[in-house]
């Protein structure tokens, strides 16, 4: 094997044959799921896919670039309202509205990223927190545009002749968007841009000395992350069919932050595991009203103390354990 092909293999997302087989199986399972599940459970899975999109976006910002955001609900809200309003008021086709939702959220992400050039840690957390709360307040007050606290009903989306009316349609729409955006994020991380993100997290001064434009890459991380949130918000709005400002409050931001901390920071797999776990949790604990919140909080504390790399870290250890077994 020449060096060139060796480097090429390192660049591919699925490196080994078993990895390809597993990925193929996963696709197959995702394809047949709608025939086995329906109703609430299928919707839950659709919601999990949407959560994966948002969690991966947040992980790009917080896990990889090291910039905390407590205002992600704001970006999700902007995405949901942009897409719904463009379809309701300007009668734009859904595909355009979806992209615009990501785009508008991305522009806001860029703007929120500007103060991040001077703020770090808790100060950045407070700045982004303020942004998240402001979005909610503006949506309540700007009644002529947003319908105020009563909310609005995003229409059923359609692409060309294909109208997404049933749960199965929504499932495939969300799963395929999720797969595309996951692959995009995985590619990005392995590229020059992903390396610059991680470099900023690890040492700003060294990144600067190596020619990384901190202004550009920090605001880019915010914009990309907000783009993911905007797309997720748009899909969420159309899936549920009703959005109101209080659906995008501080708890939502913390909820997504818990997902990536519990799943694993700076890990795509972690974002996926965390999203699925936290989306499924309320279903299994639906008997007791506030228990999910208690569990988020408790697991957040336990994970930070005992497993800083989250569920992914645990998975890596297990894999290593089996590979090394019986030693």
């Amino acid at each position: 094997m020449t060096l060139h092909t060796e480097y090429y293999n390192e660049l591919r997302l699925l490196k080994s044959t078993p990895a390809k087989v597993w990925f193929g199986l996963l696709l197959l399972v995702l394809l047949v799921i709608p025939t086995a599940l329906e109703g609430y459970l299928l919707n839950l899975l659709t919601l999990a896919a949407i959560h994966v999109i948002i969690a991966i976006g947040l992980n790009l910002l917080t896990g990889y670039t090291g910039q905390i955001s407590l205002g992600h609900a704001g970006f999700i809200g902007i995405g949901a309202y942009t897409s719904a309003l463009l379809m309701l008021k300007l009668h734009l086709p859904f595909a355009l509205a979806l992209l615009a939702a990501g785009g508008v959220a991305g522009v806001f992400g860029f703007l929120v990223g500007l103060p991040a050039l001077r703020l770090t840690g808790p100060y950045l957390a407070i700045a982004t927190l303020g942004f998240g709360i402001a979005v909610g307040q503006i949506l309540v007050k700007w009644e002529s545009l947003s319908g105020g606290s009563l909310g609005i009903h995003p229409p059923k989306p359609s692409i060309g002749p294909l109208v997404f009316t049933s749960e199965t349609h929504f499932y495939f729409l969300s799963i395929s968007t999720m797969l595309l955006m996951t692959i995009g994020a995985a590619n990005l991380i392995k590229s020059k841009i992903g390396r610059a993100f991680v470099a900023i997290r690890e040492s700003e001064v060294a990144a600067l000395a190596m020619g990384v434009n901190l202004t550009l890459y920090k605001t880019l991380a915010f914009a990309v992350s907000a783009f993911y949130a905007g797309i997720g918000g748009s899909l969420m709005g159309h899936l549920i069919g009703y959005i109101s400002p209080d659906a995008f409050n501080l708890l939502v931001s913390i909820y997504f932050l818990s997902m990536i901390v519990i799943g694993g920071l700076a890990s795509i797999l972690g974002s996926i595991l965390g999203s699925i776990l936290l989306t499924a949790l309320p279903y299994f604990l639906s008997g007791i009203k506030n228990l999910p919140m208690v569990i988020y909080g408790a697991s957040l504390i336990l994970i930070i103390i005992f497993e800083p790399y989250g569920l992914t870290g645990h998975w890596m250890k297990l894999r290593l354990y089996w590979r090394m077994w019986p030693f």
Binding site: G184, N187, L188, R195, A207, G211, V212
Partner: peptide, 16 residues
């Protein structure tokens, strides 16, 4: 990362 300055790829090219 030391090659950062010499690499020209844009956001979309990198993501795809």
């Amino acid at each position: 990362l030391g090659r950062h300055c010499h690499m020209k790829i844009g956001l979309l090219g990198a993501a795809a």
